[in-house]
Amino acid sequence: MKFGEIPVGQALGAILAHSVSHTGGVFKKGRVLSERDIAELADGGIGSVYVAQLEADDVGEDEAAQIIAGALAGDNTRVRDAATGRANIMSALDGVACIDVQRINQLNLIDESLTVATVGAFEVAGAGQILATVKVIPYAVKRGVLDIALDILADQPALSVQPLENRKVALIMTSVPGMKASLHEKSQAAMRGRLEALGSTLDEVKITEHRIEAVAAAITAAAPAHDLVLVFGASAIADRKDVIPAGLVEAGGEVVHLGMPVDPGNLMMLGRLGAIDVIGVPSCARSPKVNGFDWVLARILAGLDVTSGDIMGMGVGGLLKEIASRPAPREAGPR
């Protein structure tokens, strides 16, 4: 692509790089100059303009952006028509954004002329939300750049949305002597709000003693009729032998992972009883503010498998905003 300032008389068919005012108004940048345009500019005393002139191996910005966006977009997405070198990919429904981070990075490393920006991997997205934008920086990209990008995306799209499904969820809360009923009410309200926002239903709530045997019995009873079991302990989980994980094991389940590199949310437990996920909910989830538990919850409600390795990989970006009301802030106040 040629770019620069040229005499107006030589600009026929060129792309105007900067907006130009003339006697009849304004020609906006990106306009392909016609014979009539050239005449108006000349009549207005404009002798030269900054333009881009495409060469044989160039692909125009809109065409290139549209092609790349189409190759990127997978299930439950839609691509908007490109304009000004930009093509947006939208979510077609409420769900979780599944992004191949490695291939997005590969695309952005091809050449500075081509960029792809996305929402975060596994971010909850609403229907109609922008998931990604493909932006061509100059007025064209080289055919070779486009070909490399299409090779990267040849096997399958790098962006899709896994739909959130209406899942039946059981909530078990443990209690100890002297525990206020208002704490259970607060926990239940926060959990109901989370689930409803993600399209699922809090189907059953049970309060039981904070003992291994009681937790085991409650999980055993709840699991067969539900898609997910949440256990809110009267105290935080401190070890795999603590009440909640030990109760799950006694029920015949397994602890997949205890703890996570996300704060708030460090003391979450992910477990399974057969095919049913069982989550030991961290105390911070009594607040409706986002914590690490929310990241795992959204994936599970979208039907995505969450592994121990997935949780261990959440550390970058896992230091969330401080919650002023949390009982153990990261740093003590001034003494």
Rank of each mutant, 00 (worst) to 15 (best):
L270C: 03
E209K: 08
M314I: 00
L228C: 05
S19P: 10
A125R: 14
G30W: 03
V296Y: 09
I300K: 11
G315P: 07
R143E: 14
V32Q: 02
A82L: 06
Q162D: 13
I6W: 08
L301G: 02
A246G: 06
L114M: 08
T208A: 09
A275Q: 14
G303K: 01
L304D: 08
L114A: 04
R335D: 03
T208S: 05
A324Q: 13
A217H: 07
A189H: 13
I46K: 12
N108H: 07
G25N: 03
A275F: 13
D227R: 00
A64W: 04
K29V: 02
L54G: 08
I104Y: 06
K29R: 15
H22W: 12
G292F: 02
V278A: 03
V136F: 12
T118C: 11
L183Y: 07
G193Y: 13
V116D: 03
P224D: 07
Q106R: 13
N291D: 13
V116F: 03
V145F: 02
A158C: 10
Y139W: 14
L258Q: 08
S91H: 04
L93P: 01
S34H: 00
A140S: 15
P224N: 06
I244E: 07
V306N: 11
L131E: 09
M260C: 04
V229K: 04
Y139D: 11
T174K: 05
K142M: 13
P288D: 02
I99K: 12
H226Y: 09
K142L: 12
D203L: 08
A234R: 01
V281W: 00
P329V: 04
D94T: 05
V136Q: 11
L248V: 05
K168S: 14
L228N: 02
T133A: 14
L230E: 10
P138C: 03
V290K: 11
R335W: 00
L198P: 06
